[in-house]
């Protein structure tokens, strides 16, 4: 067991090893849903919520699988858990915030195939995090994802108004922006180890 404090785990997941900009997880929504600041924010919040729920479930599932020596089923079990967590968030969002539900539309079910979420579940298993550490890790990862997608959306909204060469419009420009963003996040690397 590593002697990492909870605060360090949180900061590590949110900033130093940001899931999107340093570990390349969840690039699809990061590039796909970052066109508008408002949608990006709600997408970030929904993803962070699913991350939190599925990380807790994955922790419990892992205990069960370890107890019965069924580690080879881990992947299948995790993906099933994530799909159900997404369903749960979708239903509760439909009930408690119908406007947000409509704004997110198709992107909600697509959270299932966001690799940041499965990645989170796998990483916390690899690192043998205990319960509290998993909670800190998943909230950190969620906050990091939210931060990255909101920053990106802000940049892209500004970019709409600027005059860029026609060949670089769209995906190529977004990738360059992401590269610069990732470069600036590397400045945090000195804060802690890997």
């Amino acid at each position: 067991m590593q002697a990492e404090s909870l605060g360090f785990i949180f900061l590590n997941a949110a900033i130093i090893n940001n899931f999107v900009l340093a570990l390349f997880l969840g690039i699809c929504p990061f590039l796909g849903v970052s066109g508008k600041l408002k949608t990006a924010t709600s997408m970030g919040i929904a993803t962070a919520l699913v991350m939190f729920i599925s990380s807790l479930c994955a922790y419990a599932i892992n205990l069960i699988l370890l107890h019965f020596d069924l580690e080879f089923l881990r992947l299948i079990a995790y993906i099933a858990v994530i799909a159900s967590a997404v369903q749960l968030v979708e239903m509760s969002m439909k009930k408690f915030s119908p406007t947000l539900f409509r704004a997110l539309g198709i992107f909600l079910p697509l959270i299932t195939t966001n690799c940041a979420i499965l990645g989170l579940a796998l990483f916390q298993t690899f690192r043998d995090y205990d319960f509290l550490q998993s909670v800190a890790y998943s909230t950190g990862a969620g906050a990091g994802f939210l931060l990255a997608i909101v920053l990106m959306a802000g940049l892209r909204e500004k970019l709409e108004l600027s005059d860029v060469p026609s060949i670089s419009r769209g995906a190529a420009m977004s990738l360059m922006l992401a590269g610069i963003l990732s470069l600036s996040f590397m400045g945090f690397a000195g804060l802690g180890g890997h």
């Binding site: 060949i167 670089s168 769209g170 190529a172 590397m186």
Partner: peptide, 25 residues
Amino acid sequence: VIMLLPPGGFFVLGAWLLLFAWIKE
């Protein structure tokens, strides 16, 4: 070294997409 680090991935993919967009245009 930057090419091996995360930003390099974004830059190289962006550059490839630029190249293809240029050819297409």
